[in-house]
Amino acid sequence: MPNQRAVPTLRRRRLGNELRRRRTAAGLESRAAAEAMGWAESKYSRVENAKGRVTPQEVESLLKFFGVEDAQVVAALTNLARDASKRGWWRPYGDVVADSYRDLLDLEADADAEQFTGPAIPGLLQTSAYAREIIGATGLTRTQEEVHALAELRRARQAILTTRPGGLAPLKLWAVVHEAALHMTSAEQPHMMREQLRHLLDISDLPNVTIQVLDLRGTAHPGMIGLMEIVQFPAPWPTVVNLENLRGSHFVEGTEDVKVFEDAFARVVAAALSVDASRMKIRNIMNGLDT
C-alpha cells in the first residue's frame, strides 16, 4: 500500500506549533532536533509544519531533548500525537462540512468549556427545525440537501453536552443570547420557536449548561459586534476564539488577543439578565405572555 500524504489537521497543526514553541524556548535550531532524532532536517520541518506524522514515542523523545519535564505537558502532547490522525466523527457528512467548521468541531472535541454570544441561538442549543431555518437563511449557496445535512450534523454535534468518548466530562457551555433571537418567527414552521424555547428551558437544567438572555431594554455591550465563541482547553493548550461571518470562521489565538475577547464576554455576562431571570424571560416568551 503506498504511503499516504499526511493531512494538516487542526490537531497536527497545534502539535507542530507547540513543538516549535518548546524547541525555541530551549534555544535549539530545528537541525539540532532533527539530529537528535536521527532524521533529516526536512523531516523534522514537516512535523512542525503539520505535514508529517510523528508518534507519541517520538514526541516524548523530542520533549526530553528540549528539556521539558512537566508530566502534564508531556502527557498532553503525546496524547495529541496519538489522536492527530483520528477521523473526526463528522467525516460521514463529507464535503458539506467546510474546513473552518471541521476545525471548530475538532476544537470542541478536545475542549473543556465554551462561551458563546451572538445574534442567534448557538448551534449547540438548536433544535433541528431552528437549525434548518438558520442554515437555510445564512448558507446563501447551500442546496436544500446540504441544509438538511448540516442541520443533522449540528444536532449530532450536541451530544458533546451529555456524553463524550474516553471518559471525558461533558462540555461546559455558557451561552448569552440576545432576546431578539427568541422572538424570531418562521412562516414555514409556525411551531418552530415554541419548540426551540422549550428546548432551551429543558437543556438549561443540565449542570454544565448556563444560559443568559440580553434584555431588549438592556444596555450596550461588546456582544453587539457579532458572534464569538471562546473555546477553552485543559493545560497546556491555550484558549481559542472563533469568530464567524458569511464566509466562514476565523480563529484568534495568542494570549493578548484572546484576553480582549475574554474581557468582552465578561462584560456581556454582566449586561445580561441573571440565569433565573433569563429562564423566566424564555418561559414568558414561549407562553406568549411577555409584552
Rank of each mutant, 00 (worst) to 15 (best):
Q72W: 00
D70S: 15
V97D: 03
A271K: 06
Y130G: 04
E35N: 09
G123D: 01
Q232S: 13
P92V: 15
H148D: 15
A113E: 04
Q212W: 08
R132F: 00
V59E: 11
A235Q: 14
D205C: 10
E145R: 14
S30V: 09
R217Q: 11
I160K: 04
Y44H: 08
I282R: 13
K43N: 06
D215C: 01
R82N: 08
W39G: 04
A32R: 11
V59A: 10
E58G: 03
R87C: 02
D257G: 00
D290V: 14
T162G: 03
I203L: 13
G94D: 11
T78Q: 09
A98Q: 11
R82G: 02
H199P: 04
V240W: 00
E256F: 06
A175F: 10
Q189G: 00
L168Q: 13
A36Y: 13
A266N: 10
G226H: 05
A131C: 04
T210D: 10
E18R: 15
L182G: 10
S30I: 07
W174E: 10
L28W: 07
L173K: 11
T55K: 12
Y101K: 03
M37P: 02
T127E: 12
E69S: 14
Q232T: 12
L197T: 09
R283W: 11
W174N: 05
E244H: 10
V268A: 05
R23K: 06
E152I: 02
A131I: 04
V213C: 07
L19T: 14
L19Y: 14
A26M: 12
P122A: 02
V275I: 15
N208G: 05
M193N: 01
P236L: 09
T9I: 03
P170C: 08
S42G: 09
I230T: 00
T219H: 14
A129C: 00
E60N: 12
L216M: 13
A98C: 02
A129L: 00
I160G: 03
D106C: 03
P170K: 09
S100F: 02
Q144T: 14
I225Q: 15
L19K: 15
L104M: 12
Q232M: 08
F66R: 07
V177F: 10
S278I: 07
L140R: 12
M1S: 12
T163C: 01
N3P: 01
L161W: 04
V240R: 00
A84M: 14
K51T: 05
Q144G: 05
A181V: 07
N79Y: 01
A40I: 01
A75I: 03
Q232I: 00
I134Y: 02
R21K: 15
M192C: 03
L243T: 11
S128V: 05
I230K: 00
Q232W: 01
D215F: 00
K86C: 04
S249Y: 13
Q72G: 13
R164A: 08
P190N: 08
I121D: 01
E188C: 00
S61I: 09
A175K: 06
L10I: 01
G254A: 06
G16Q: 09
K259N: 07
P238H: 07
V260Q: 11
E229D: 11
D202N: 14
R164T: 09
A149M: 12
A113N: 03
Q126Y: 02
T163G: 00
A26R: 13
V258K: 01
T219C: 07
A266Q: 12
Q232K: 12
P207K: 00
L15Q: 07
A76D: 06
L182F: 08
T143Q: 05
V68M: 11
V240Q: 03
V74D: 02
M192N: 05
M184S: 10
